[in-house]
Nucleic acid binder design. Structure first.
Lengths: 339, 339
DNA sequence: AGCCTTGACTGAACCGGATAAGTTCGCTCA
DNA sequence: TGAGCGAACTTATCCGGTTCAGTCAAGGCT
């Protein structure tokens, strides 16, 4: 089956290639009657313009790129990315943009991918995930002048556009809730420490605990995997003054933590309250269901995509604040039992 | 920053565009010395050929497409797809191919996407997931002559290449194991019934149960979500002759089922044994850890990608059998307690 | 009537590569 | 010595769009 080209449409309509191009792109230069005729013929023979030819003659590539820098085992288990992607996708496909995905090993590889995409004109812009403290990707993208939207912040995004949510406020809400329940010894199992949002949450945690006079407020680091989350929990619960509540930086670690607590003979929420970040369906599957800080992740992705398309269209780089994650109390939090 | 083109390289090397093209593509027609000089200049100025121009002049688009037909909430929670994607990606990026992703609403939308990709020459081939019984995508792809590899089977893939795993054997192994433990009343919570692999598993389940003389072997349908999996479990466990073991078609439903069992006061594995399909890290997170039918999903994706690249290169469509999922016994299975 | 404008369209150049066809040039060998 | 030949290039064409500079006829205006 031969692919129809613009010349095929032109021939059938008895006009030139140029006229067809004007008609299909809504440009002036053809009469309304001719435009309709051309459109009808294009539909009839199933014509869709070659993205390559279009990209070559200066128009957009019709695609945006997303590079993911996490090992496969973490990518798979964390619902976050897949939900983000489906949100991004929904927005993009509504505007007939394609999403090009690449998994990379580290920051340097990611920068190399951006440089290649830029040289190949393969994408019109990129979405940047997992913002780090002192992120080398930002200056690299600025130098390339490749349209980009950073998913993360606030701050640290240079002159690039960004979409961010107020993690500090959310974390503060969670701590205040636990304190209101009567908890005084609260710990936190954090994500990768060089991610900027981890830093933001850590700062907020330290600040609010100081303000509320909680002295034992400790953060231990993990890597978002269940194994590490479980280990971190085991360490926390083995200490002399064990916490009565733990906040986890993602749902997977929270579930692992729940498992460890139960294995150590502690009841949740009687002996230990648990709060998870990222309220995925997983949180409702376990027993007791987890209190979680949730938000609409597909919407977050959709906003980022919309923002990116705006930047590609030449609008100035904005900083859009997304919904603040909100606390959904479930069975894993309660007042601490007297000991 | 201006993107370097082949003309820039040619100018700096003092040769024609053609010579540069030959040099970069390893074609004969330039001396080794010139080739090296051109290569060095290309690297120096950071030249990467425009994928658009390349695609336009008859070479490949350098991308393959993957359309996913599941709602966002299922995509997010099931580790399967993200693991598959990262495996596909690993193979593709090693060969400098890009992955274009699109989430679609239904089979018709998916076919429309294939048709558009084909018309736009946006991809060189596609990977087809979630093979259905009597799948309309197969004839559509055959008609377009778009290179494709079906992830699924065996059978029902028409003349297209495919990569499949022997789900029937795996399911048989699981049932035989449960029977060996002493179970006589085994139920199954299946996935979406119009997926071909669901059908395959159902047939195998019916066959092996018949063979082993298990009369109450019942399959109930679900949709892979935790909610539905939990509901299905509740129904099964509320029946007069409740099963002593349940096999779930994915891990999420198995975890939900575990939760429901515990909520109904049954102990696992004492009162109920549970086997999950798809052994993701989730299975090890819960308590007790789940016995599961697992396999290397990233490798599965990588094989499919490799197969697709072979088909794109013009090799005949093969049918590759991948590793059969194997049973990993954990704490969720044990001999049934006498009642 | 003659001039100018406008709308509708055509023709050709161009984007950046791949590649077939043509052009040198040095070398071999009759 | 010069025809013949292959290596090492160059030139030109093509891919399928976009877009700019024209062309041409119809209509308005003075």
């Amino acid at each position: 089956m031969k692919r129809p080209t613009i010349a095929d449409v032109a021939r059938r309509a008895g006009v030139s290639k140029g006229a067809v191009s004007y008609a299909l792109n809504g440009q002036p230069g053809v009469s309304e009657a001719t435009r309709q005729r051309i459109l009808a013929i294009a539909t009839e023979i199933g014509f869709s313009p070659s993205s390559a030819a279009r990209a070559l003659s200066g128009a957009s590539a019709g695609a945006v790129g997303l590079a993911l820098c996490r090992p496969a085992r973490i990518l798979g288990i964390e619902p976050f990315f897949m939900e983000l992607i489906s949100g991004v996708e929904a927005e993009l496909s509504a505007r007939s943009y394609a999403l090009t995905l690449q998994v990379v090993a580290d920051q340097d590889a990611e920068i190399a991918v951006y440089r290649r995409w830029w040289g190949e004109r393969r994408v019109d812009g990129v979405l940047v995930c997992d913002l780090r403290t002192d992120d080398r990707r930002i200056p690299a993208l600025e130098q390339l002048q490749l349209p980009a939207v950073v998913i993360g912040g606030p701050g640290g995004t240079g002159d690039l556009a960004s979409v961010w949510s107020d993690d500090a406020a959310a974390l503060t809400e969670a701590v205040e809730y636990l304190v209101a329940l009567g908890h005084r010894r609260i710990a936190r199992v954090g994500g990768l420490p060089d991610l900027r949002h981890t830093q933001t949450r850590t700062d907020a945690f330290t600040a609010v605990c100081g303000q509320l006079g909680l002295v034992d407020a400790v953060t231990v680091w993990s890597d978002y995997t269940g194994e590490e989350g479980g280990r971190a929990t085991r360490r926390l619960l083995s200490s002399a003054q064990r916490p009565t509540a733990v906040i986890y930086d993602n749902d997977v670690m929270a579930i692992a933590g729940l498992s460890v607590a139960q294995e150590m003979g502690l009841t949740v929420p009687g002996d230990l309250s648990i709060v998870a970040w990222d309220d995925s369906p997983l949180c409702r599957l376990v027993h007791p269901p987890l209190t979680a800080l949730g938000r609409d992740i597909p919407a977050y992705g959709a906003h980022a995509a919309r923002q990116l398309l705006a930047v590609i269209a030449g609008q100035p780089a904005g900083r859009v604040q997304d919904e603040t994650p909100h606390l959904t109390p479930r069975g894993s939090t309660a007042p601490p039992r007297e000991r």
